[in-house]
Simulated scan of single mutants.
Amino acid sequence: MIKPLILPSYYSDTEIFQREQMLIFQNLWNFAGFTTDLQSHNDYICAEIGGKSIIVQNFHGELQAFLNVCSHRFSQIHQLPQGNGVLKCPYHGWVYNCDGIPVAIPSVERFDINNETRESLRLEKWLVEVCGKLVFVKINDDGLTLKEFLGGVYDKLAKFSEAFGHKINEFKIKINANWKITTENTLEGYHVFSVHKNTFSKYGFPVDKKYICNEIHSAYSDKGNPKYIEKSKEAILLKKAESILESRPLKVGSFYHQLVFPNLTIATNDGIAFYLQIHQPINPVETKLTSHVFVSKLDIKSDFEQDIIDTLTQSLTKIYVEVCEEDKAICEIVQLGISSRNQEGGIFSLEEQRVYEFHKAYSKLINSPM
């Protein structure tokens, strides 16, 4: 009998939440954004990692990451999720260079500042590395590179992200549930026929299911159910788009879902579209789910072909958004239940083995010394 390793109280406890922020989100490589938003000098993105606002900024082609807090009087520096601008505090106008050192200080003669002082006032620096088009950051300089952290997933993520075409949808929703509940929900299909009656379940029980659970970054694939899929509206649209889709750079031959521990998931339906989700904890019982949907890179030769692809991707995106709303509702119900339970318990099926692997990775980290 496979039993959960995370106690029910860990899904609402404030002290546990603070340990997670330190030991998991600040300590590990975490997804921060896309290189496509950092193409030019002074392009920047901001991300919430472990309860902290982090800047990743392009300085003449080199990416640097800093805590988004001025070292003078602690104002946030950049306020937008992304943009272009010098690293300048809006409060008193301090400007920082690519090393995070203040190089322009209004009325500097009124301060007791020398070169050594400037050095002591540098911004808190974070590590930043890139995998394909995906940007990751972390504060803990323990020598573990992003490639080492991702292991066998590194090349797959790079190939996936390099196949991203233009973004066709981005949306954010707040879910009244712990981030572990929302993440675990994406790691199993056992709930599909109960929760997704009008979306996923209408395509029948999938075949050729495979679980890859030899790393903390677990994965799943299946080939759907041809008996049901061939009758669907999406199958008809796919048939119309078949010749156009041949130009896509990545063909995985199945639906594929990848967890990048702790809270990033990337899914694709045979390389046609890509669905990237970040499960960002707000507090012990609230999560911000951010979803990015990309269509594959395609060789579109006419407006007619573009119209076909647009119709297909609109249909796929509509289903995806509906599924997210269904998952939001059930995750909030689970949170209500688990918050009322004090003792350990529960049981996992074989279809929930990725959840169990998530529990193992989480438990090892959360019980390590701070």
Score class of each variant (00 low, 15 high):
1 M>Q: 15
1 M>T: 14
6 I>N: 08
7 L>S: 11
7 L>G: 15
12 S>L: 08
14 T>L: 14
18 Q>G: 11
19 R>I: 05
20 E>G: 06
24 I>E: 04
25 F>D: 09
26 Q>P: 06
27 N>L: 15
33 G>P: 08
34 F>P: 07
39 Q>Y: 12
42 N>C: 13
47 A>E: 01
47 A>S: 05
49 I>F: 05
52 K>G: 11
55 I>F: 02
56 V>T: 09
57 Q>H: 03
63 L>I: 07
64 Q>W: 11
66 F>Y: 06
83 G>H: 05
84 N>T: 10
90 P>V: 05
91 Y>W: 02
91 Y>I: 00
92 H>L: 02
93 G>W: 01
94 W>P: 00
99 D>K: 10
101 I>S: 03
105 I>F: 00
107 S>Y: 14
107 S>E: 11
113 I>T: 00
113 I>L: 00
115 N>D: 15
116 E>R: 08
120 S>H: 08
124 E>P: 13
124 E>D: 10
126 W>K: 14
142 D>Q: 06
148 E>A: 08
150 L>M: 05
150 L>N: 10
151 G>V: 02
156 K>Q: 15
160 F>Q: 12
162 E>Y: 13
163 A>P: 11
163 A>Q: 13
166 H>T: 13
171 F>L: 08
177 A>M: 01
180 K>F: 08
181 I>E: 03
182 T>W: 00
183 T>P: 01
185 N>S: 00
190 Y>I: 01
193 F>R: 13
197 K>N: 13
207 V>W: 10
209 K>P: 12
209 K>S: 11
210 K>C: 14
211 Y>I: 12
216 I>E: 15
223 K>Q: 09
226 P>Q: 11
231 K>D: 07
234 E>P: 08
238 L>A: 06
239 K>E: 13
245 L>R: 00
257 H>R: 07
259 L>Q: 02
266 I>F: 03
268 T>N: 11
268 T>D: 05
269 N>G: 12
269 N>L: 15
270 D>P: 04
272 I>W: 09
274 F>E: 06
276 L>Y: 11
285 V>F: 02
287 T>L: 05
290 T>C: 09
296 S>T: 07
298 L>Y: 07
304 F>Y: 15
308 I>V: 02
313 T>V: 06
317 T>F: 11
319 I>D: 13
321 V>P: 04
331 C>Y: 00
333 I>W: 07
351 E>C: 10
352 E>A: 04
358 F>T: 04
361 A>P: 02
362 Y>D: 03
